Amino acid sequence: MSQFPDMILEPLVRAALLEDLGTYGDLTTRTVIPAGTRYTARIVAREGGVASGMQLAAIAFRLVDPALALRVQVADGAPFVKGDVLAEVEGDAASILSAERVALNFAGRLCGIATLTAAFVAEAAGTQTRITCTRKTTPGLRMVEKQAVLHGGGFNHRFSLSDAILVKDNHIAAAGGIRPVLQAIKARASHMIRVEIEVDRLDQLAEVLEEGGADVVLLDNMDTPTLREAVGMVAGRLVTEASGNMRLARVAEVAATGVDYISVGALTHSAGVLDLGLDF
């Protein structure tokens, strides 16, 4: 799987290191570790999952000390089990210890997202439905959290408000209804921009289909029988996305309705941090 260039990710990692090292650097390490002490350390999985964040961990060690040698054993996007060594880093012990927490924070958080995404993707196996994330991400970390979703086998929704037109219920209310919204889009939007509109009732969906102007319809907070009826009404004319109340236990039955996408905010806003450790 392709990676972002390191130069794009470096500002994120640098900011985290500056936060952690504070004004005077790593006082503990500087005080107790003799100069010139060298070690090999391993990032070890305390539980199984899917790898993500290895690139950011590598950047953290390199920014602290370019002489550190890091060897990734489990690439981003690959599964691992408890006890697996995800990476090894060799060099100055003080440098390794100073970068340790930032490297593990990124890796643990992103492995958690990739692992949860993989669980949702597995529930939709055997159907055409794709699992996608949302914009419910940690401020400042959207790029890497969405990349972790890809590592887990999911797909990405919009990265920002400028990516596409996504008309939600509040837009419809403020603009005066579905027809005025779609008419404004057809009159003003560039032909290069994709358009998605949210509905939560079948009569709204019928209005969207009659008026035209959308590429994707977001079927929001519908129960499973209603979703199935909505997919039948669309009949392939629009891309369909189901959203709202998408618990892991519900994914299989929603995917069986034939929707094209299931968007899950929990992939990024509720994923746990995977337990990783750095062992000397």
Results as ranks from 00 to 15, higher is better:
26 D>W: 11
56 L>N: 01
166 L>M: 15
151 H>V: 00
79 P>A: 07
120 F>Y: 15
130 R>I: 09
33 I>R: 02
207 E>V: 05
71 R>H: 03
214 A>Y: 00
236 G>H: 07
62 R>H: 12
80 F>L: 03
151 H>L: 00
138 T>V: 15
261 Y>W: 14
226 T>H: 03
37 T>L: 02
202 L>W: 06
116 L>W: 07
152 G>W: 07
179 R>V: 14
154 G>A: 03
195 V>I: 15
105 N>E: 08
119 A>M: 06
89 V>R: 02
61 F>P: 04
148 A>S: 13
209 L>H: 05
91 G>W: 09
169 D>G: 06
177 G>Q: 06
34 P>M: 00
29 T>L: 03
114 A>F: 06
216 V>T: 10
160 S>Q: 06
3 Q>P: 00
64 V>I: 10
179 R>Y: 01
270 S>N: 03
124 A>S: 01
47 E>S: 12
177 G>R: 05
103 A>N: 03
88 E>M: 06
40 T>W: 02
53 G>Y: 12
268 T>V: 07
219 L>H: 07
41 A>Y: 11
150 L>D: 04
235 A>M: 08
267 L>R: 00
87 A>H: 08
151 H>C: 14
217 V>E: 09
33 I>E: 02
262 I>K: 12
29 T>Q: 04
96 I>V: 15
41 A>L: 03
96 I>Q: 07
194 R>K: 15
72 V>A: 03
68 L>F: 14
92 D>A: 11
258 G>V: 02
261 Y>L: 15
200 D>M: 03
258 G>Y: 01
212 G>S: 13
13 V>Q: 14
54 M>I: 08
243 S>K: 05
176 G>F: 15
54 M>Y: 10
188 R>S: 14
115 T>Q: 06
15 A>T: 02
124 A>C: 00
239 V>S: 06
15 A>N: 02
